[in-house]
Amino acid sequence: MHKHRPFVKPMMVVTTSGYVVSVLGPYLADSKNNNAGILNHMIRNNTEEMRDWLQDGDTFIVDRGFRDSSEMLGDIGINMEMPCFMQRGTSQHTTQEASHLRLITKVRWVVESANARLKRWKYLNHVIPNTQIPFIGDYIRIVGALCNRFTSALSSGNEEEDQATALKMLHLSKRKNELQEFVESNGSGLSNRTYSEQKIDAAGFAQDFPKLSDSEIHQLTLGVNQPVCDATFRITSICAKWPGSVHDSRIWRESALCQKFENGEYNGFLLGDSGYPCKRYLMTPFLNPSTVPKQKFNAALCKTRVIVEQTFGILKRRFSCLQGVLRTTPRQATKYIVACAILHNTGIDQGDIVESTQVQFYGGNNNYNNALTGDGFNMHNYIVDTYFTCVK
Rank of each mutant, 00 (worst) to 15 (best):
T329D: 05
K294R: 14
G144Q: 02
V143M: 05
T151P: 01
T59E: 08
I200L: 03
F319H: 02
K168S: 11
H380D: 09
F205N: 06
G187A: 11
V325M: 10
Q55A: 13
S255H: 09
F205M: 13
G65C: 06
K296V: 14
I38H: 01
P210N: 12
I128C: 06
H171N: 10
L326A: 04
A153D: 03
V359C: 02
E355W: 00
G65M: 03
D56K: 07
H380Y: 08
A164Y: 03
E160Y: 06
H380V: 00
Q323S: 10
Y123T: 13
G189F: 07
T151C: 09
L24Y: 14
N125S: 08
N345G: 07
D30K: 10
W121M: 15
S22W: 01
L257A: 07
W53C: 02
I238K: 01
P277C: 14
I38G: 02
G313V: 08
D162H: 00
E160K: 10
L146V: 12
F233L: 07
Y336D: 02
T90M: 07
F261W: 15
G189Q: 05
L179M: 11
V224Y: 03
W242T: 04
H4K: 11
E184V: 05
L146W: 01
S113D: 08
R327Y: 13
A299L: 08
A29C: 13
N40W: 00
N115W: 05
T334Y: 00
F66K: 01
L73N: 02
H344G: 03
S213A: 03
K122W: 09
H126D: 14
N345D: 12
S99C: 06
D162L: 10
Y281A: 04
K106N: 14
V354K: 07
L282V: 07
L222W: 08
P243G: 06
N288S: 14
P227E: 06
G324I: 01
F66Y: 15
F319C: 06
D56I: 12
T94D: 08
G268E: 06
Y123W: 12
I78P: 00
V384S: 11
W252A: 02
V391E: 13
D56C: 07
Y362I: 15
E48M: 14
G272L: 04
